[in-house]
Design a protein around this nucleic acid. Structure first.
Length: 648
RNA sequence: GCCAUUGUAGCUCAGUUGGCCAGAGCAGCUGAUUUGUAAUCAGCGGGUCGGGGGUUCGAAUCCCUCCAAUGGCUCCA
C-alpha cells in the first residue's frame, strides 16, 4: 500500500513530493548525507521544530544547521535541560521548575531546601559533560494532560504539575526525553545531547522567586553561558573581563570621583573633588541649555510636611519608596522623594495668566528615596540623588510643542555626549489598575496618552509603546540607554502629570478672564547626577572629553631646574580657568607621563630646556603621544576653545 | 526585602587542616639622582584582619549577630 504523499516546499522553491510523516532528517538525507549530519532542526511553515518532527501535510521546510541564529538558542535551551538532569542526578530530591535560554546563555530554577553555592557548579558541570558525551537522543512525546499532571505529582515535581495545570486547554502537553530523564517542554530540541558541544560554562547561582513574584517561595537559580565553539565562549568571557575594567565603581575609585562610607550609609554617595567637577560641569550645561529654552530656576527644601504628600498622592502611591516620617512638633515630615509638589506650590504662589504660560520651573534638587538594600548598585541606584528636574505648566494648545521641545532637548544632550544607542519608550497605564497603581481618572489617561503619542509622531521621533509602565500620575517617555558595557538604564524621563490640577488647584486666567487648568509636564533629561555620571564613566571608560575631565592639564617638568618656568605656566593656566596640576617631583619624565596616562589626564604640558628658552610648552595628548610644541599663549587659546565648544 | 558570595595597609591581593610579634607589590614619606615622551635607586612609616559577641590554652581562620559591598530575584531615575 503506497503512503499518502505531501508537498514540501524548500526555500529555493523546489517542491518535493514525499510520504506523509517524513521528517526534516529524511529530507536532508535525501539531499545529501553530509547535510543530514549537519542538520540540527527545521523550520516548518516558519515555526521551529525538531529535526525528527513528522510532517503531516503540505508545508514549507527550511533545514537549519549549526550556523543558524536559532542554533544558539537551541544549544542554550538544551544546556539547561542537561544541567537539570545533572542536578537531579547529583542532588536527589531537587525539583525542577523552568529553564529557558536567555541572552548569552541559559538558566534553570530549582526548588531545593539547601540552595546551591558556587562550589557546586564544578561538579554539575562535570556531570553535564558526561551526559553530553552519552549523545542521548532528545525524544518528543505528546501526553494526556491529566496523566501528565498525575505523573509529575507522583514524581514529586509539584512545580511542573502546577505549570501544566495553568497551561491553556488548547495547548498540547509535550515532554522531551533524553535517555532516562525527561522534562515537560514545548521544544524544539537538538537531535542529541552531543550536538550541544562543550562550549559552555556555569557562571553563577542566584535566588529567584517562583514565577517572579516576591510573595512566592525563593528558588535557587543557576546561570550558564553557552556558545557554538570554544572560541566564541572565550570571546564572551573576555568581553566580560573588559566590561569589568570599565565598571564605573572601579573607575570611580581609581579616578577618585566618589566614594561610599559604611558610617554614612548605604546608597549615599560622597562626591570627592574630582567627581564634583563633573557635577559642576553638567549643571553648567543644564543651566545654560535650560536658560536658552526659557526655564526659570528655583530652589526648594529637602523636607516637607506629610500633608503635602497626601495631596500630591505620594503617600498613597509612593510611600514604599519614601523614607519613614520624622515627627517635628507633632507634625509628620518627610524627606522629599521628588520635587514636583514644591514646584506646584511655587506655581500656585502667584496668580497666573495665559500670557505668562508656559511657566517652566527648573531645579537641581536633591531627593531621597528609600530603595530596598538589595537593589542599591554603585551610582546607578542610590538613596540620595540630585535630579535635573523641571516642571512645565502650559495650556493644552501649547502641550505638544512643549513636550516635543523636551524630547529634542534629550537629543541635543545625547549629541554632546556622543550617545548613539537609545530607545524612547512611551509608557502607558494599565486600565485594570486604575485606582491602585494609577490615579483613577480614566478619561484623562486616554486623553493625555493621545496627546503624547501625537506630539511624538508630529516630531517624527521613533518610539515604542509599553503598556502598564506609566508613572502613577500620568504617561511618560523614558529614554533607555546602554552603557558601553551593555548595562541598560532609564536615563531621561518626561512625564505628564494630570493629577495635579485638581489636587493643587493650579489655574491660570485665559483670554476670556476665565479660570483654566494648565497641563503639567515633568521632565528630567539628564536623569540624576548619580546615574548620569555613572553612565558617563562607563561610556567614556573614564576618558572624559576635555571639558568634563576633572584634571584637564598636568604640567610635567623634565628636571627641577625648570620648576620656576613650570610654576609660571601652572599659574597662567589656572588663571585662565583651566583645571591644572603640576608634577614637579624629582622623577624621570617617563614616570610622570605614565602616571598622567594612568590618571587619564587628557593633556600633558611638558617643560624642559627648550621650552623655557622660547616660552613654549611641549604638548602630549593622552593615547596620542607627542603633539609637538606650542607657544604658551596659543596652547591656552586652543584648550579654551576645545573646552568652550565641549568637543568630544 | 529575599537567595548566594565577599569584607586583611590608601589601592590590588597572599595568608596552608585555628599555633611564633599578620605578609607582598603599588601608592606614601625621607634621601640620593637632574632626567626629553608609559615605571631611577635606597631606606622608612603604615593594619583594633568590617563592628560586636561566642567557642578555644590559643581565632584573620570555627559559630552567632549587625553593618557594608558584589551577583541575581522583585522594584526603579
Amino acid at each position: 500500500m503506497a503512503d499518502k504523499l505531501i508537498n514540501i516546499t524548500l526555500p529555493d522553491g523546489t517542491v518535493l513530493n514525499k510520504p506523509i510523516g517524513s521528517t526534516g532528517y529524511d529530507i536532508a538525507f535525501g539531499i545529501s548525507e553530509s547535510l543530514a549530519k549537519q542538520s540540527i532542526a527545521v523550520e516548518i511553515n516558519n515555526e521551529f521544530k525538531d529535526l525528527s518532527y513528522p510532517m503531516e501535510k503540505d508545508c514549507s521546510l527550511k533545514i537549519l544547521k549549526k550556523d543558524a541564529d536559532y542554533a544558539l538558542e537551541l544549544i542554550r535551551h538544551d544546556c539547561a535541560h542537561v544541567m537539570a538532569e545533572a542536578v537531579q542526578a547529583l542532588y536527589p530530591g531537587t525539583q525542577v521548575t523552568i529553564g529557558p535560554a536567555i541572552e548569552n546563555g541559559f538558566y534553570y530554577d530549582f526548588a531545593r531546601d539547601k540552595p546551591f553555592t558556587v562550589d557546586d557548579l564544578e561538579k554539575i558541570e562535570k556531570k553535564m559533560h558526561e551526559i553530553i558525551d552519552e549523545g542521548l537522543e532528545f525524544k518528543r512525546e505528546v501526553w494526556n494532560r491529566e496523566e501528565a499532571i498525575k505523573f509529575f505529582e507522583n514524581e514529586g515535581e509539584l512545580y511542573k504539575a502546577e505549570i501544566i495545570k495553568d497551561l491553556p486547554g488548547s495547548e498540547e502537553i509535550t515532554i522531551y526525553r533524553q535517555g532516562k530523564w525527561l522534562d515537560l517542554c514545548r521544544g524544539p530540541h537538538l537531535p542529541t545531547t552531543k550536538h550541544i558541544g562543550k562550549s559552555f560554562k556555569l557562571m553563577k547561582v542566584a535566588g529567584a522567586y517562583w514565577r517572579g513574584n516576591e510573595n512566592n517561595e525563593m528558588l535557587t537559580r543557576i546561570y550558564g553561558t553557552a556558545w557554538r565553539t570554544d572560541k566564541e565562549l572565550r570571546t564572551y568571557l573576555n568581553m566580560l573581563k573588559e566590561a569589568e575594567k570599565r565598571d564605573h565603581r572601579k573607575i570611580g575609585k581609581e579616578m577618585k570621583l566618589f566614594t561610599f562610607d559604611e558610617e554614612v550609609g548605604a546608597g549615599l554617595p560622597l562626591w570627592l573633588p574630582n567627581g564634583s567637577v563633573l557635577i559642576e560641569q553638567l549643571e553648567n550645561l543644564a543651566k545654560e541649555t535650560e536658560n536658552d529654552a526659557g526655564y526659570d530656576r528655583v530652589k526648594t527644601p529637602h523636607i516637607t510636611k506629610g500633608s503635602l504628600y497626601e495631596k500630591s498622592g505620594h503617600l498613597s502611591h509612593y510611600k514604599d519608596s519614601m523614607f519613614p516620617a520624622m515627627d517635628i512638633d507633632g507634625n509628620e515630615y518627610y524627606l522629599k522623594p521628588m520635587n514636583c509638589p514644591h514646584h506646584h506650590k511655587i506655581y500656585a504662589s502667584l496668580p497666573r495668566t495665559y500670557k505668562e504660560l508656559p511657566v517652566r520651573l527648573a531645579e537641581y534638587g536633591t531627593c531621597y528615596r528609600y530603595e530596598k538594600s538589595g537593589q542599591l548598585f554603585g551610582l546607578m541606584r542610590v538613596r540620595s540623588m540630585q535630579m535635573n528636574d523641571a516642571h512645565i505648566y502650559c495650556t493644552e494648545e501649547q502641550f505638544k510643542n512643549e513636550f516635543l521641545s523636551v524630547c529634542n532637548m534629550y537629543l541635543y544632550y545625547f549629541k554632546i555626549f556622543g550617545i548613539e544607542k537609545y530607545e524612547m519608550r512611551l509608557s502607558l497605564h494599565d486600565p485594570e489598575k486604575l485606582g491602585e497603581k494609577y490615579v483613577d481618572e480614566p478619561e484623562l489617561w486616554i486623553k493625555t496618552e493621545k496627546l503624547v503619542r501625537e506630539s511624538l509622531q508630529d516630531g517624527e521621533l521613533n518610539f515604542v509603546e509599553i503598556p502598564g509602565e506609566a508613572a502613577f500620575y500620568g504617561p511618560k517617555i523614558d529614554v533607555q540607554v546602554w552603557s558601553a558595557i551593555g548595562r541598560e538604564f532609564t536615563l531621561a524621563t518626561n512625564q505628564v502629570d494630570f493629577a495635579i490640577p485638581s489636587r493643587f488647584d493650579l489655574t491660570y486666567i485665559d483670554k476670556d478672564n476665565k479660570n483654566q487648568t494648565p497641563l503639567c509636564i515633568h521632565r528630567a533629561p539628564l536623569g540624576t547626577h548619580e546615574r548620569f555620571i555613572g553612565f558617563l564613566i562607563e561610556h567614556f571608560a573614564g576618558n572624559f572629553p576635555l571639558w568634563l575631565a576633572p584634571v584637564q592639564v598636568v604640567v610635567i617638568t623634565i628636571s627641577d631646574k625648570f620648576n620656576d618656568y613650570a610654576n609660571n605656566v601652572f599659574k597662567e593656566l589656572k588663571s585662565n580657568g583651566i583645571r591644572v596640576n603640576i608634577d614637579n617631583r624629582s622623577e624621570k619624565m617617563g614616570a610622570k607621563i605614565r602616571l598622567a596616562e594612568i590618571n587619564k589626564i587628557p593633556i600633558m604640558a611638558i617643560i624642559g630646556e627648550k621650552e623655557v628658552s622660547d616660552n613654549s610648552i611641549s604638548v602630549r595628548r593622552k593615547f596620542k603621544g607627542d603633539q609637538g610644541s606650542l607657544k604658551l599663549n596659543d596652547f591656552i587659546q586652543n584648550i579654551k576653545k576645545e573646552i568652550d565648544n565641549r568637543i568630544l
